[in-house]
Write a protein that binds this DNA or RNA. Sequence first.
DNA 1: ATAAAAAAAGAGATTCTTATCTTAAACTCG
DNA 2: CGAGTTTAAGATAAGAATCTCTTTTTTTAT
Lengths: 154, 154
Amino acid sequence: MLSNACKYAIRSILYLAINSSEDNKIGVKVIAEELETPQPFLAKLLQQLTRDKLVSSTKGPNGGFYLDSKNRKNAIWDVIISIDGTGKFDNCFLGLAKCDDRNPCPVHFIVAPFKDKILDSFRDKTIDEYVVEIKNTNRVISLKDLDLFEDEES
Amino acid sequence: MLSNACKYAIRSILYLAINSSEDNKIGVKVIAEELETPQPFLAKLLQQLTRDKLVSSTKGPNGGFYLDSKNRKNAIWDVIISIDGTGKFDNCFLGLAKCDDRNPCPVHFIVAPFKDKILDSFRDKTIDEYVVEIKNTNRVISLKDLDLFEDEES
DNA sequence: ATAAAAAAAGAGATTCTTATCTTAAACTCG
DNA sequence: CGAGTTTAAGATAAGAATCTCTTTTTTTAT
Ligand code: FES
Ligand code: FES
């Protein structure tokens, strides 16, 4: 549904939203390590996002990537468009030409409501709002430090 | 989520379920035309499905592919396993190592119920049951004859 | 100047998709 | 039965898309 590239991009945007600021720019290297993604690939993606004004960057010493307040008003959907282009979402789950209520494939009415829901969530919430939610609910974005609740039992 | 190959496979299984029988075997060529899929690619997929006993075939004149009553007791899920292998479904939507309720990514709780539901539908229903449903509700499987309801208005 | 970092371009690897060609099986008809 | 036709099975490879890595250039801070 989403390309690998796009997943990396979304995760890094969220990472930057949480960890960066104008005073605290973060280099590709750190981001890549933190998110456990291939570094050069991520670099390219971040460049793309920068061109599309979804993240900000400065070169030179103490340079790096960060999100300014404008960037934070964008939606995840913008990231998806920037990286994967539109389309991947509107397609029929079984590969029919159109995904359409009037000519549904056998799984259409199972898939469609969820597609709508997730699409809404991606389009309507700003990055900022996502971050609030992530902070409130302890959602994970990096591959590291999984099993946060490991020793919760007993 | 599903590979192209897998989509083709699912659609041809359903096509065969609806249109074929032991007395009415259907050749790759017809199936490929009907479903508008690349013929040689489909051929390979059908071979794979035949090896896994999900479809039946005979060679020679009047030969072709069909579903016998055993084949019809399988589930779509079996097709997915045969073509894509397991896994593609259990993955995190944002590419994290595990998709896990305890360490959810920011979209996990939007995606997870959907995944469960569709998975159930794929695992629990037999091909036969799907066909009944398709017939009852006029679902589309081929790319041709879309817009069944084109002139329904007015 | 020097060093740090992103930007840019592009080479290489891998996987996914499609096409071609040969072989083997099954039926048909003389 | 036996030659010829039909169709799937199998092997191989060409093409395309996706993903990963390398190298060079440009910008900026100190
Ligand atoms: S028509 Fe297949 S998912 Fe909507
Ligand atoms: S953890 Fe990401 S979808 Fe479940």
